[in-house]
Simulated scan of single mutants.
Amino acid sequence: MKVLVSGGMGYIGSHTVVELLELGHEVVIVDNLYNSQIDVLDKIKTITKINKLKFYEADCSNMNIMDNIFNKEQVDAVIHFAGYKAVGESVLKPLMYYQNNLNTTMTLASLSEKYKVKHFIFSSSATVYGDQVSPLHELMELKVTTNPYGETKKMSERILKDFSRNNKDMNITLLRYFNPIGAHKSGLIGEKPQGIPNNLMPYVTQVAKGIREKLFVFGNDYDTVDGTGVRDYIHVVDLAKGHIAALMNAKSNFNIYNLGSGVGTSVLELIHTFERVNGIKIPYDIVERRPGDLATVYADASKAKKELHWGTKLTLEDMVKDAWVFEKNLR
């Protein structure tokens, strides 16, 4: 199968590209490198031992440029990762997020319709559930999200659901991610944020490496096992394989699946696991809660297990070990 991967140079996108290539699929990467690096391309080639890999440096919201790419490549499937993703930035720059993330989705959907693409997989998020009691499942009514980033995911889902009604020959799948961490076992690709990390795991690894003095834990007075926030962490490789499962097994016109482990882990549990597995002490301070943070978020992933024959294989220990190996390899 020939698959166009928008945002394929990013964290989750690059791992999915590797999984696709190792299964013999042909991949076309489109990425504007806004939040990724060009050297990822060579690292993908090193991991897969595939030297000829199609890459277009392009903005996926640009209809004319993307039309030319679709016309030239004639792909069978689209996996759509491209979009701005920093929650804090979305609060400061909401119009930038709405304009880019929604236009990118609509452009790729429109061209998929024009060129009769058979499969369209969208990178969504557990943020679309808003503040609800976990475990979260796909039949829940979506609530108001806490930031513009989450709203762009929810609005994109609605756009694609409406779009699916008039495109019965296309399999459209929404994958709601929980908290991806970890890195490829090679240590060559992983999460490499620009500037101060927004996510917990790269902040932990930067503290371990001495780049940052200490970690800040936002709140220890939640109604959880130790007072810190609980999240559903999933190894990025398991997450990437979830996209392959959706591509190969989704049968109906419109599908929604949670991709998570189904297990909640607190911030302190994650920190202590990192310390135990890697033999490194992580200094941290407890500070005030962040506005909009929820106490507990974890998935009911039974639907993906039943229909996609997918489930997580890698443990929390694997996640923290692989994340640290990747961080150590960075220069």
Score class of each variant (00 low, 15 high):
1 M>N: 07
2 K>N: 01
6 S>D: 07
11 Y>D: 07
13 G>I: 07
17 V>E: 03
26 E>W: 02
28 V>W: 03
30 V>A: 12
31 D>W: 05
34 Y>S: 14
38 I>R: 15
38 I>A: 13
39 D>I: 01
44 I>D: 01
44 I>Y: 02
45 K>F: 05
53 L>V: 11
55 F>M: 02
61 S>W: 09
62 N>I: 04
66 M>C: 04
67 D>P: 01
68 N>D: 14
68 N>I: 03
68 N>A: 11
69 I>R: 09
81 F>M: 02
86 A>Y: 14
91 V>F: 09
91 V>Y: 11
96 M>P: 00
98 Y>E: 10
102 L>T: 12
105 T>A: 13
107 T>G: 08
112 S>C: 03
115 Y>A: 03
117 V>F: 13
117 V>C: 12
121 I>S: 05
121 I>L: 12
131 D>L: 15
131 D>R: 14
131 D>Y: 14
134 S>K: 01
139 L>E: 13
140 M>N: 13
143 K>L: 13
145 T>F: 06
148 P>G: 06
149 Y>P: 00
150 G>N: 05
150 G>L: 08
158 R>W: 13
165 R>C: 04
178 F>G: 07
181 I>L: 11
182 G>T: 02
185 K>N: 12
186 S>P: 01
187 G>T: 04
194 Q>H: 08
202 P>E: 00
203 Y>T: 15
207 V>L: 09
208 A>D: 01
208 A>W: 03
217 V>P: 00
223 D>Q: 04
228 T>S: 15
229 G>Q: 15
229 G>Y: 02
229 G>W: 01
241 K>L: 06
242 G>H: 10
243 H>T: 13
255 N>V: 02
258 N>T: 10
265 T>G: 00
266 S>T: 15
278 N>K: 08
281 K>E: 08
285 D>M: 01
286 I>W: 09
290 R>Q: 10
292 G>E: 03
301 A>L: 02
306 K>V: 03
309 H>A: 12
311 G>T: 11
311 G>L: 04
314 L>Y: 14
321 K>D: 06
